[in-house]
Write a protein that binds this DNA or RNA. Structure first.
Ligand SMILES: [Mn+2]
Ligand SMILES: [Mn+2]
Ligand SMILES: [Zn+2]
Ligand SMILES: [Zn+2]
Lengths: 145, 145
DNA sequence: TATGAGATCAAGAATTATTCTAAAACAAAA
DNA sequence: TTTTGTTTTAGAATAATTCTTGATCTCATA
C-alpha cells in the first residue's frame, strides 16, 4: 500500500523544493480537506499520520511550500494565518462570527487595471469578503425574534 | 489656542461613542498623517501630545473607533495590524519589502456581484494588492545590474 | 450638589502565534 | 567515505495583543 499519492510527490518536486516525508505529509494534510486550516490544525492532521513530526517543522514546511508557490498563505484576521492549496485564482469569504473561510470565485474581469504610482510592481491581488456565513446569519436572525 | 479641531470632536460624537481626550488624541494621530500606522506608532504620536496616555488605552481607543466605523483596521501581514482613517471605499497596496501601505482607488464596478452560498451575509469587501513600491522596485532593479 | 451605576483608563501580567537557536539527522556532492 | 549544505527537532525567545484589576471619570438622577 502506498503511503503517498504520486501527485503530491510530483507537485513538490516540480516546484523546485526537496521532497521530504514531512513536506509530503504537510502538503497532504492541506489537500485532504481543501479547507483553510491554521498551522496548528495542519500540525494535528500531519501528526495523525506521522506522530514524530514537530510543530516547528510544520511551520518550516508551510513556509517552504508557500515560498515555492505550491500553497497560499491567507491572512483573514489577526491571530493565526491560514493555508490554502487551491492554486486557481480566487478570493476568500471569512465569517466574522465562526471564523470559517471558504473560496469565492473571482470574475476574471475583476483583475482590472489598478491605478497606482508609476513604478509600482504588482505581484498579487488578494480579495477578502467579510460577513456572516449562512449558518451564522441564520442563527443571528433567529435570535432576534 | 484650541487643542483639538471641532471636526474630530464632531466625528467621534456623531458616531455614537463617548468623546474622551484619549479618543480624540488617538483619532487625531491617525488623521494627522493619513498613512497606515500600527498601534504602537499611534501610541507614539498620541504620547507626544498626551504623555500620560497608555498603550492599553490606545488599543482600547482604536477598538472603539473601529467598532463605531470611524476608522478601519487593516490586516496586510502577520505582525501588527494597521489603521486607516479614510472612509471612502478603497483598497490597499502593501510593499512586501519595506512594508509601506498606501490607498488604492477602486473602480465602483469592482463592487461586482459575488457568487457564494445562499444565505451568506456580505458586510465588507477588502482588497489588498501586494508587490513592490516604486522605491523598492527601483532598488531591486538597480542591484541586479 | 451629592451619589450611584456604568464607562473608561492605566499598569502590568498573561496569552498566543510565530520565529529563533542550536544540535542532531539526513542527503547529495566530491 | 568525507564534506557540505539542508532539514528536522525541542525548547527558548519574541512581539503583538488581550486580559485583569483597581482607580478615575461621566452622566443621570435624587
Ligand atoms: Mn482558498
Ligand atoms: Mn487606507
Ligand atoms: Zn459563521
Ligand atoms: Zn517598499
Amino acid at each position: 500500500m502506498k503511503a503517498h499519492s504520486a501527485t503530491s510527490e510530483d507537485a513538490i518536486t516540480s516546484h523546485g523544493i526537496r521532497l521530504t516525508p514531512q513536506r509530503r505529509y504537510v502538503y497532504e494534510a492541506l489537500m485532504e480537506k481543501r479547507d483553510h486550516p491554521t498551522a496548528s490544525e495542519v500540525f494535528m492532521r500531519a501528526k495523525a499520520r506521522m506522530p514524530s513530526i514537530s510543530l516547528a517543522t510544520v511551520y518550516n514546511c508551510l513556509d517552504a511550500l508557500t515560498e515555492s508557490g505550491l500553497i497560499r498563505q491567507v491572512y483573514c484576521e489577526r491571530g493565526s494565518s491560514r493555508y490554502c492549496p487551491n492554486l486557481v485564482p480566487h478570493g476568500h469569504f471569512f465569517c466574522k462570527t465562526c471564523g470559517v473561510v471558504f473560496d469565492v470565485p473571482i470574475d476574471p474581469a475583476q483583475e482590472a487595471s489598478w491605478e497606482f504610482p508609476e513604478g509600482t510592481q504588482l505581484e498579487h491581488v488578494e480579495i477578502t469578503l467579510r460577513g456572516l456565513c449562512p449558518a451564522c446569519a441564520q442563527k443571528q436572525t433567529t435570535s432576534l425574534l
